[in-house]
Amino acid sequence: MEKQSAFNIHPMDQFIIDPILMGESLEWYSFTNQALWMLISLACISFVFIYGSRKHQLVPGRLQSVAELMYFFIRDMIIDIAGQEGLRYFPYIFTLFILILFGNVLGLLPYSFTYTSHIAITGFLALSVFITVTAIGFIKNGFGFLSLFWISSAPLALRPILLIIEVISYFVRPVSHSIRLAGNMMAGHAVIKVFAGFAGALGLGAVAPIFAITAVYGLEMLVVVIQAYVFTILTCVYLNDALHPGH
């Protein structure tokens, strides 16, 4: 890897976690490039939601309508999927959504760091969703929550088989939930980086890879928003399962 080849492409370098303050070695408390971009996304969120809507306008301005769009989009989504009871968990789901959305979108800036491309981050988020939702299920329904796995609408003979499938799919949820997001983020960024490497090596022929980068970048802009949406909507679906396990 260290040897310089004709194509000097290091598509995975952009994901390296680098301590940028407090020394060279990475301790658990080191302030890293990842933490920096979390801070930047926090600033952007505050800018959009707090500065943008500081005037409480009746007819929203540009920033305020962006903030309102996101806010009511998630709110309506929760009501649609999990019902009115789901609104109790709105702060958590909305936090999740803007955390992922801003991470994804800011990650598209050149030289930025995409914290949602890390399995540790998405895994942590997905696991917290999984644990929270399971806890809510048991607290709300007691052992009735287990009826989620016992599909009473299926023929009796099939139910044990379905039970196994349902249990497996339930425990796979956090894995698919987290890998879907991290994988999408990582793949898109790596592809852009690979094409950028081609562009660097091809001289005048770089027109083609640059065109490809433009196209992939456009696609990525779609993907980052959709992945944030998918993560949130799946969280809502899981929450709905916990609130109403009886299918």
Binding site: E2, I16, Y29, Y115, A120, I121, F124, A182, M186
Partner: peptide, 23 residues
């Protein structure tokens, strides 16, 4: 220069999760 996937470098996990929790 990254060796393999930096995402699978478990030594960075405590740091990542620490900052994520604060965030």
């Amino acid at each position: 220069s990254a060796v393999g996937m930096p995402q699978l470098d478990f030594s960075t996990f405590p740091n990542q999760i620490f900052w994520l929790a604060i965030f």
